[in-house]
Design a protein around this nucleic acid. Structure first.
Lengths: 225, 225
DNA sequence: CGCCGACTGTCACAGGGGTGTCACAGGGGC
DNA sequence: GCCCCTGTGACACCCCTGTGACAGTCGGCG
């Protein structure tokens, strides 16, 4: 049974979500401020944290960063629509997912389960996307049991994408993660590598189902249906 | 039901992990110092040890070495990220796996189960890879029943590879495990030894099927199909 | 509905980096 | 002292990789 910590200052929302999440089968601890949240976190060691961004005193981002300095547990941010925050600002502070308020309990629950599942998959050293299996220990990728013989760069690209399945990564981000340098002129570097990767990984490279293009942004690895 | 011994001096982490691991279905004994840990180990004979590296008094590496002098049970090291330790420094002292703190309980649990599974397979003193048989007790390697007359270094290399079949090991890691020193310039040391080993072990050394090259990484011993 | 611009897919090629291979010299064990 | 093992460095080769040009596609706008 997953054990959650909910940090939210608005009494109505906090109590409502606590009730709903408990009914969905989670154990829930709650805190009404960033300070309380951090203290409870250290005491109780929850499996996952749901964290409001707008908090009096220490705000949610800061709570997130402080937790991240020492711990890797999943964190889901709650943001008000009016905050109009780029996904990335949140993810930069180390959160794993974010949900826009007002939030329906069953939506939040779905996100929670998704993030927890993701954690389980990643903790094991291999993960599967359809018939494609990534083995992080052997550093191999197989499709229908056949070794795909990825090149080092292709492999790193796929590994980085698979660390964040379902999340769109910009060319800029991929450049940093895979190539470890900052500046991408207007070269087709990332595109070319994605193309080569698709040629090996996809059933029909011209109609990709695993590595999807996100127009105007970059690419995304779709989790299996 | 697996019986674990958890050696960790930080009260919060120890209690937290004990709780979590118990919830995951393990029996857990705990110790807060290296001395206590060794004593409990001798008394209780656990199936597996989870061992913090930073301990007052005898540190984790030393505990690991002492246990290894007499016993072969699986040991998982816990290291703080800030220690910035290469995987292999830990593996050198004889540990079977290592996990970076802060650790999610379910990640630790997954590693524990993986190590225990691996241990069951390896518990026999000999293993076969196709027609190649490694006899750890006799310290011999035969192929089609013929003794292969490996040199000491070749044998150590093969043994280290065979302790982690299917897992890619970098040249750096192999250097530490087999040669016990840290710095690999740009010499062909590891490659040369692998080549000599292949010449004896492989059917067609130029097209190896046992000791595979993992480009950009290192080498890997393929488990039998 | 059609045009236009921006974005992406694709490809060939040249350069570079990583790996296989080998011969040789030093060193340690018997 | 002899011999086998071992580490080194040089070299060649092959595959990978980044680039740039061009074609194709998508979305928006009139």
């Amino acid at each position: 049974m997953p054990f959650l910590l909910l940090i939210e200052d608005d009494d109505a929302i906090r109590t409502g979500l606590e009730l709903a999440l408990t009914r969905q089968g989670h154990r829930v601890a709650t805190a009404a401020s960033g300070e309380d949240g951090l203290r409870l976190f250290k005491e109780q060691r929850p499996d996952l944290i749901v964290l409001d961004v707008m908090l009096p005193g220490i705000d949610g981002f800061e709570v997130c960063r402080r937790i991240r300095r020492t711990d890797q547990l999943p964190i889901i941010l709650l943001t008000a629509r009016s905050d109009d925050i780029d996904v990335v600002v949140g993810l930069e502070s180390g959160a794993d997912d974010y949900v826009v308020k007002p939030v329906q309990p069953r939506v939040l629950d779905a996100r929670i389960r998704a993030v927890l599942r993701r954690g389980e998959r990643e903790s094991s050293d291999s993960s599967a996307y359809g018939t494609v299996v990534i083995d992080r220990a052997a550093m191999t990728v197989t499709k229908d049991g056949q070794d795909l013989q990825l090149t080092p760069t292709e492999l790193r690209l796929l590994l980085e994408l698979s660390r964040r399945p379902g999340q769109a990564l910009s060319r800029q981000q991929l450049l940093r993660l895979v190539w470890e340098h900052d500046y991408l002129g207007d070269s087709r570097l990332v595109d070319a590598c994605v193309q080569r990767l698709r040629a090996k990984v996809e059933d029909v490279p011209s109609a990709p189902t695993l590595i999807r293009t996100v127009r105007g942004v970059g690419y995304r690895l779709d989790p299996p249906a």
